[in-house]
Write a protein that binds this DNA or RNA. Sequence first.
DNA 1: CCAATTGTTATTTA
DNA 2: ATAAATAACAATTG
Length: 274
Amino acid sequence: MPELAEVEFYRRRWSAGHGDRVRAVRVHAGKPLFRQCDPARLVRGLTGATLLGSEAAAKQMLFRFSGGGWLGLHLGMSGELRVEAPAYAPARHDHLILVQRARQLVFSDPRMFGAVRWHQGPRPPEWWTRLPPPIRSAAFTPAAVGAFLQRRRRAPLKAVLLQQERFPGIGNWMADEVLWRAGLHPRRAAGGLTPAEVRRLHRACRTVCRQALAVIAGAGGRLPPDLNAHIPRSWLFWHRWEDGGRCPRTGVPLVRETIGGRTTCWSPGRQRPS
DNA sequence: CCAATTGTTATTTA
DNA sequence: ATAAATAACAATTG
């Protein structure tokens, strides 16, 4: 499930453990989740360390520990972070648990497309510092979007929006939401947009990211009880999987089809193929 | 049994 | 050689 805003939502859950020491680590070593790290070193580094802080960017999270330890998490397709009571008994898909005095920080991922990384050193790891500039940053300009679209000019817009090197954090539902807001058909060739359409796409990316973060991860106040609790009914989000779902703006029946290898939903009329 | 799933990457095709 | 499409990864559900 997790895209930009969901990742931030889950990171903030674990921030309940900031400032507390990790007394023990439970890990399903040998699972593909740990292919990018050495589970033995992970456990050795985490045990006894204090969780000092954390950040999320794109679909990545980075947790900082005392002693120069950095824990990287990616939630893949089905990952989630939870906070459980000290007495909680681990379930089958709880592949990494940081046990603290007052709680357990649980990383659960049934499909195991996620990843766990461990880095030891004074500075954050290379993979983190080299992430592309966020969509909400000043570096995400219409010119940068336009240049990227030109390089992928024959690919459908939907496929291009899913490329993390230019649209970090965008996933399947956010891509559909962006194209719907911009009024662009997902099958349009990336290189065929007018300058005005590129600007619309750029603006829709920023708007969707900003609003999704506010609504899903909480603007500044407290975390919503549930991921989707505050997503407005006026978003495509709620209608894209419904059978007989209708465009919340035009009332026209929505269409679903595979584009760029992923199930894609759009509103005919509002998003024209040429 | 077949199909589907909010992600990424290796491999194949054009 | 490059870019686009496809398969594969694993688990679960309809």
